[in-house]
Amino acid sequence: MSAVSAGLRSSRRRGVWAGRLFMAFLLLSLAIGFATLLTLVVQVVFKGVEWVDLVLLLEPPSADPQIAGARPAILATIYLGVLLLALTVPLGVGTAIYLEEYANRNRWYNRLLEINIQNLAAVPSIVYGILGLAFLVRGLGLGRVLLAGAMILTLLVLPTVIIAAREAIRAVPDSIRQGAYALGATRWQVVWRQVLPAAVPGIATGSILALSRALGETAPLLLVGALTYVSFNPTLLGDFTALPVQIYQWVARPQPEFRDTLAASGIIVLLVILLAMNALAIWLRNRYERRW
């Protein structure tokens, strides 16, 4: 009896330690990520929360930190978000549908397309900025306008949206497609009535996460000419700034009111916008989640 239980105990010891070590490693990884985020948020909130007020939200920027606001930047960021959605979702989902449902993978050009898209997702955003400057602002002669900024952000996140949409479309089981085909549906009907509705939650989540990444971008916008001082409301084909650019400009100023307090309050506004969008993504995913 005791021999049996002793045997059991000794053979387990190593596994137990390996398990504990692994658990410790997992907790450490979690702690590092969490602590970084927490430090960032706490520090920003302490510095800037008292300046988050109607002046910040409703006033244009000013040389006097007491009356300086970020209204043009906030509005432009919202405009950028809407334009981005309108441009990226149709293009991204369209590309994803082509690659998943129509493309014959035995053809070299389709494989080339796939590799290209994956590589584009890894291109640094400043490179997109240079492209935007050379091609959109100068080449097409759009000028340094909001639309050019939205277009370059679209190019920046398009690969991410395509990849997310492809994953969502691929997750729709083939049995659904076969069932629809077997009833006499055409390819268009199968895609439009079965595959896309089933893939909507995944596509929505991926698009929103990509969008929130794009709205935090500064570098490409600086290159296509987001100005640091804009005192009027943005228009589609006019000068513009954006919240990250505004924050960047404030941080670069020598006065502590700008550098610390106002910049921190701008960051709070940006964080609230982005967290709200992520929350929407999570809500959408849970709301429309499918079981097979």
């Binding site: 049995s175 069932g179 085909y181 077997a182 009833l183 006499g184 079965q194 499918r290």
Partner: peptide, 15 residues
Amino acid sequence: RKRIGMVFQKPNPFP
């Protein structure tokens, strides 16, 4: 496929 219907091995109702 309109005239010749099919039932599959694993039930595959649409969601």
